[in-house]
């Protein structure tokens, strides 16, 4: 019998306690200074804030790239494809394509580290949604340099537009 009352009491007390906790959170969300936790993000309307080191879609500088293949070798998933041509009457390579397959890329940033000329970095674009797999293949050599280097936002439109340009937008540092 004592246990019966104890069970009853503990049930009532702890249920009331739990309900009080949720009620307090309920009330706190109406505090104009605090608001709800999720109210800090207005993602589709405003871009989601990302940290300075955010590892988003790459930034790539075609003008300095020497096509040394270091990033492609470092990539654990082999998602970087570099097209290069020998420069006539000169040394080094001319980059004819620098494609990253974002259906494979896992944003580990291992490609950034070995680059001898610091031409590839992780950017802050986090959304590159597209309707076909074609959109996941981004050829940075055919993107406008501003977009590729992150001064303008990397966006699906630019990626789509880059597919129709036949020539790379710049020939690399040896041009």
């Amino acid at each position: 019998m004592r246990e019966w009352f104890r069970n009853l009491w503990s049930a009532i007390a702890t249920v009331a306690q739990g309900m009080f906790v949720t009620l307090r959170v309920f009330g706190k969300t109406y505090d104009q200074n605090r608001r709800t936790f999720t109210e800090h993000f207005e993602y589709p309307e405003l871009p989601a804030p990302v940290a300075a080191r955010y590892r988003g879609f790459h930034r790539y500088d075609l003008t300095t790239c020497i096509a040394c293949d270091q990033c492609a070798k470092a990539c654990p998933v082999d998602c970087i494809y570099i097209g290069k041509e020998r420069v006539e009457n000169g040394k080094g390579f001319r980059v004819s394509g620098f494609t990253i397959d974002y259906s494979k890329c896992m944003f580990c940033a291992l490609c950034v580290e070995p680059c001898p000329v610091d031409c590839i970095f992780m950017g802050s674009t986090l959304d590159l949604s597209c309707y076909s797999r074609d959109g996941t293949m981004v050829d940075f050599a055919r993107l406008p340099v501003d977009v590729a280097w992150g001064r303008a936002t990397l966006n699906p439109t630019a990626v789509a537009a880059s597919k129709v340009i036949v020539e790379p937008v710049h020939g690399g540092p040896n041009q």
Binding site: A51, A52, R53, R55, M106, F107, C108, A109, L110, M122
Partner: peptide, 30 residues
């Protein structure tokens, strides 16, 4: 979420950090 914010600041990712690596860490704290 707050911890992930901290991790994001430190290493740039919220789930797949690859932060601690062989020989140390990829970067010092900001």
């Amino acid at each position: 979420e707050r911890i992930l914010d901290l991790f994001e600041e430190a290493c740039g990712a919220r789930l797949t950090y690859s932060y601690i690596t062989i020989g140390g860490l990829t970067a010092d704290l900001p």
